[in-house]
Amino acid sequence: MSAVFDVLNLKKAFSGLAVTNDVSLSMAPGDRVALIGPNGAGKTTFVNLVTGNLRPDSGEVRLNGETVTKIDAIGRVRRGLVRSFQVTRLFQDMTPAEHVALAILQRDGRSGKMFGNFLSMPDVMEEASALLGKLGLRDLMHRKVSEIAYGQQRLLEIAVALALKPKVLLLDEPAAGVPQSDTGRIEQALADLPPDLAVLMIEHDMDLVFRFAKRVIVLAAGTIIFDGSPADVTKDAAVREAYLGSYANASHAA
């Protein structure tokens, strides 16, 4: 299948220090890729370069074959590159229904409508409650976000991203900060992501990485040092060295 998302020789330096150094990768629809790497490896910078929040010094980002390097973050979202946030960024005073409805309306170019209310738009309500239902949030859809549990907020973060109908989804530590008892729900939500969606997940939790990803990319000091199957990643000498054994040992224990 042809690539939906390409990164070509991406480079970014902050005051002379190369934080992203010649990174290239390609993803096809349906890919499940995990991006891992020790702290300071440049994962956040890479995400910001890809989403358009930072400008690269050189290199290209392509979506569906279209070069989007010079297109701003908003334009990239509209072309189907959607991200979730590591720390949930939700509107505390709004309900899950409002979040998802706003995303649906924005996707359809209807968020500027000055009359009417999404509650009286049957198509929007139907889609919103179906999506929230799939993630087990339907009973909470009219509660304020500030009143629902953190694990449910993380699920809502995924729901908002999905409502935008992305082609490429960047998940930034989707399970960060969620109590152990609730991670099952999030894993289920990840397993249920649309099959034709290309997903790039940045994650620290190796158990989650091994269960979710079909392919693992390891970033260290701004370069890709490994790109291959989850089975091979722990055997790789360079990876072990980059982590100084910490994750490799952890996965042995698991």
Partner: peptide, 28 residues
């Protein structure tokens, strides 16, 4: 009253709370 309850009103409330989140939804 109609305006603040409309999709546009909802968008503005979102902007007040977190403009970056609104941008990540593809709105300006």
């Amino acid at each position: 009253r109609l305006l603040v309850r409309s999709p546009f009103g909802m968008l503005c409330r979102g902007i007040k709370e977190d403009p970056l989140r609104i941008m990540a939804m593809g709105a300006s």
